[in-house]
Design a protein around this nucleic acid. Structure first.
Lengths: 189, 189
DNA sequence: CGACTATTTCAATCATTATTGAAATCCTCG
DNA sequence: CGAGGATTTCAATAATGATTGAAATAGTCG
């Protein structure tokens, strides 16, 4: 691998993590190198710098493109394809979450919806369907939240994240305020 | 597989998804079946119902235990180990997030911290380190938010999620209010 | 339109991971 | 403590996934 020790450590780490992330080592390494590079790299650069095969780099880049994680660039006087990652780490993060949701959550949501429509044949089925319903409801709530949050501009998103549970403190306070004499709570939200 | 068609579909789906989630098919199937079962199941039940090998079930259960995703139960008059998943889907979700963070985020955070301490040897290193710094900062912000949120009781968490971006709307409003004549914003949060 | 280069494809190989099932170990109850 | 059943281990095998590199294709420039 023809990169400095610092960069090599980073690249190797991403290669390792790749397997835990459902992408493979090659793809992880390519992405890591593109992420830290000052200039766009072409496939030959990646072959040289990472010591991978020509075909492997081609497939890795194709996969990264399918994830929308790399951008294709054309440099003047060079007709080869060059690749970069976006500069903005928040943009990257949004893409990552979006794609993982698409691959890891949406299919399950679809399956759950289908199964919830089926007529249970046994007591076991009825119980199973109730469990699936609980799971479905939860995922719906989470994805609705995500859809909502995802629309925010980065500045505001960061603001919201920085706030953290302070907001929940406020909710708590509000609840305490609105506890009625009987002990029940008024619905206010 | 000796389960009703409804449950079989659910189990098979989780088996399929297992690979996308970094767990294997067997583990996914075992978990799915435990999740929808009315009663705790023992290893033999799982062998019968899912048609897996004795060893595979043993390893699958061990893995699920290492994820804290199943609970061991002992039934009276039966000395075999029985397994269940928690009833509360939010508790499950917390465990899942916690474990994935531990496996998929924390190691990267550690690596980044180490690499940020290194002295850059080249201009490329300096640039790479800046990129790593941006990544590090972002992950820190996200995990700090998570640590904060994670402490909330479920009721309040759900409340917060339901609110979604309404809070951001409020932030926006606040910002508009506090824009000073010069156009700069007062720091208020 | 060629000649040349860049890129992709794909069959073959290699590596890793999953799975089996029999043997070994561990437990527990009488 | 030991017999019987429950559980785990592990070597062997199967299945899947990653990687290579040479051949095919696509694309571009003069």
């Amino acid at each position: 691998m023809n990169v400095s020790p610092l960069i090599q450590s980073f690249v190797l780490h991403f290669g390792e993590m790749g397997s835990r992330w459902g992408i493979n080592r090659t793809v992880g390494q390519i992405y890591a190198l593109l992420f830290v590079s000052e200039r766009p790299l072409n496939a030959d650069d990646l072959v040289d710098l990472l010591g991978l095969s020509r075909g492997g780099v081609s497939m890795g880049l194709k996969e990264l493109q399918s994830w929308n994680l790399v951008q294709l660039r054309h440099l003047p006087t060079d007709r080869r394809d060059h690749f970069t990652t976006p500069d903005d780490v928040w943009a990257i993060m949004r893409t990552l979450v979006e794609e993982r949701k698409k691959r890891e959550i949406d299919p399950t949501l679809t399956t759950l919806r289908d199964l919830l429509l089926a007529t249970p044949q046994t007591a076991a089925d009825t119980h199973a369907q109730a469990r699936m319903g609980a799971m479905h409801e939860q995922i719906e709530l989470l994805t609705a939240w995500y859809d909502d949050i995802q629309k925010l501009e980065t500045e505001r998103l960061v603001q919201l994240l920085s706030l953290g549970s302070k907001i929940a403190k406020a909710l708590e306070f509000k609840d305490k305020l609105f506890v009625l004499p009987g002990g029940r709570k008024e619905a206010v939200a």
